[in-house]
Nucleic acid binder design. Sequence first.
RNA 1: GCCAGGGUGGCGAAAUUGGCAGACGCGCCAGACUUAGGAUCUGGUGGAGCAAUCCUUAGGGGUUCGAGUCCCCUCCCUGGUACCA
Length: 877
Amino acid sequence: MSSERRKPYPFDEIEPQWQKIWEDRQLFHAPNPGENNFDSAKPKFYILDMFPYPSGSGLHVGHPEGYTATDIVARYKRMRGFNVLHPMGWDAFGLPAEQYAIKTGQHPSITTRDNIAKFKTQLQRIGFSYDWEREISTADPRFYRWTQWIFLQIYNSWFNPETQKAEPISTYLGSDPDEVRLAYVAEVPVNWCPDLGTVLANEEVVDGKSEVGGFPVVRRPMRQWMLRITAYADRLANELKDLDWPEGIKLLQRNWIGRSEGAEIKFTIEGHDGAIRVFTTRPDTIYGANYMVLAPEHPLVDRLTTEDRRTGVAKYREQVSSKSDLERTDLAKEKTGVFIGANAINPVTDEKIPIWIADYVLMGYGTGAIMGVPGHDERDLEFARKFDLAVMPVVQMQGKTAEESIGAIEDGIAINSPLINGLPTPEAKKKIIGWLEQNGSGRADIRYKLRDWLFSRQRYWGEPFPVVWESEPNRPHGKHRALDEKELPLIPPPLDDYKPTGTGEPPLAKAKEWVRYSEKATRETNTMPQWAGSCWYYLRFCDPQNDERFVGEETERYWMGGVGAGVSPANDKAEASKRKAADTAAASTGGVDLYVGGTEHAVLHLLYARFWHKVLFDLGYLSKSEPFQRLVNQGMILGEDNRKMSKRWGNVIDPLDVIAEYGADAFRCYEMFMGPLEQMKPWSMKGVEGVFRFLARVWRLIMIENQAGQWEMSPAVKDVDLSKAQQKILHATIKKVTEDIESLSFNTAISQMMIFVNAFTTANTIPILAMRPFLILLNPFAPHLSSELWERLGAKEEITDQSWPQHDERLLVEDEAEIVVQVKGKVRDRMTMSILATEEEMKTLVLANPKIQQLIAGKTVLKVVVVPRKLVNIVTD
RNA sequence: GCCAGGGUGGCGAAAUUGGCAGACGCGCCAGACUUAGGAUCUGGUGGAGCAAUCCUUAGGGGUUCGAGUCCCCUCCCUGGUACCA
């Protein structure tokens, strides 16, 4: 490595200079309504990156991919006259800092602060135009005070099924509000990792082991805080409709929510009072239900099992409970189960059907019980074959016999079903549900795969819950009560020892003083999960310094309101109440105008944030019911060997190494030139060099090295008019770059700029009039280089204050066009013709072409297809 | 298994409504300048063939004057999901 080697252009000098200028002058600060330099005539544009967790290892090349894309759009939109909100912050609570604390004793806030400083330096070295005055950290009390405040709003609300909205808990008329709160406590099975001494989120458990350390994880019931996200299942699914998101991501969310329509059916039990309730999406197949299956954990099992079956049932349940979740689902190729001795009555046939337990029925979905219809359910069929149960077809497929229809799960015509025989599946469902309702045996029902959100963690480094437990005679744990919002922020106590207790009791429990709230009340010692801060950080960016409110009303309306909205009159009470009353569908556009980040957040962060947003919207705090109007996922960057970058393969690229060698501009441009933003693509150092050479050519278009080795303005740069050809390529470039930024096709925008530069490289004079607009086009991509050259060309104003050039369509039209001449669809010649030539003239010209005449000699011309300005196709026999 | 997204030169990739496939970049080849080149510039570069020409967008079929693009089938890759009743 020869660091001595002369740089093809002095990026190492100019880049830090410009970064300093941008920081010193706070050039990219976006004024809020009410600020001095706020211009209400400017439309707003909110463009957001998914903020990073500031890990100890610093940025990798994946982060700046999305960040560069948004930075280009942000710089472009500013020059198009928008007031652009482009902020950056830190998702700063998280397990790594806590584990580092356990190892070293260093307080997580110190680790976090250092990592943030490192990340910020790195981001600034890439030249991003963030409004650093809006920097936030989720671990800052001034921020999490409001995270806790939002939790209080959720806690103090319920979901009114009548209005399909969250409402203050005071509007609930039932006897026990704790039954309906959107935040509640429940005893649920969680992922408990004994070695780490903590519960883990599902996403932290990989193949039954902890992601960190690879320790075994077991399911264990614990008292946990839950958020009632399932209340919003329908709205979360339905309101995706109007969002400008990739269809794949919408589908992922819909599948995650997993809405299925069907019926709940009651099966009475022979010799017992109670009934077994099942959920099915195919009530029309009920005549084929000749057995039932309960989940082994189903509460009725004990009561229903007959004496002679007890040992068998106990043995089977034992077997199942010793299996991990993984074994139970993955190894379940072969169906297992036992008959429990009891029988149920099929409500439509009045026939006795045996009740089994089997682990293919899960307690966690539906009612934890099913009716077995072997004729039309793959799993039931497998089960019936294994245990020799009868299989009867009750739906016949078109073009198949009844016998052949066994195993078919598609819609067909009901057979062997007296009440609904001959009806197509959809009608059969309706009719049978009607019958069940009339007979008190069932009703239409909707179920979701989505579960309520387990919202508490046994960790130190997270937001403490603003909740205390007051002792009450009849409750072993006491009764929860929310703190008053005046008591916020609730700051976690200092600890000497961050180690998990090992019992499942959170580390905060060790701070005895802190835990003791009053004579008869103790603090909640769980903390919130890492997702909490990211559920609303985009709102805080609008108004990060506000200590009166989580976000100022007018500010929220401005940034999170309609796209390109101006400012509405301040403090209009009537307006506000009208907004509250507005129905949710009508308010479902607006918000963050462009949100860029990885697909890994498709269901978790993006679903959680939408949920919180809707609650706050329902309670009247927000303008729109959806936070992120447009979403784009950047693709993953692979190593040069086409494998995922990892230490294991030694293929990790450090952005700072690339920048040291080629500069930030080359780094930015290469990341964008690699290929389409959303696509997965491998890194190539050679590719960086290619882009770097392009930037060096731009530099040398304008600068020349003198004898002394100093860069000075090239004498070729002159204040002269452009030739017609130059005029054309300039305007073609303006057009292409503009359109490509709008469509986020940055790779082709750069291609076009390369074409532009190639065209001027050979020119002996370089017209300033061509260079100035070009530098503006280049500025979002290579801000340092373009700023420096702009200044060297003697401009008085900053390049960032320029308005974006506009192309003149008239300069792009040609007098003549090259026409493709085809015979029977094959290209045989090309001819130049006036673009004004009529179809008839074009046809005549082509038929007069000797080469064509030769080719069609002796043949009959059946047809001539003429596409004006493009092509003539002669069809012969 | 199911769902989604892909498959175009040696490589990363381009290609409005179906209308010149391979723009731009890398790599490679040749040349210029040079004491030198891992700098810079110029030209060439999908495959076969001396050539005219033929072949070519994973494979096969179809629609069309014309298909990378639209339709059907098959294969392969990537991501998600996994007994969801």
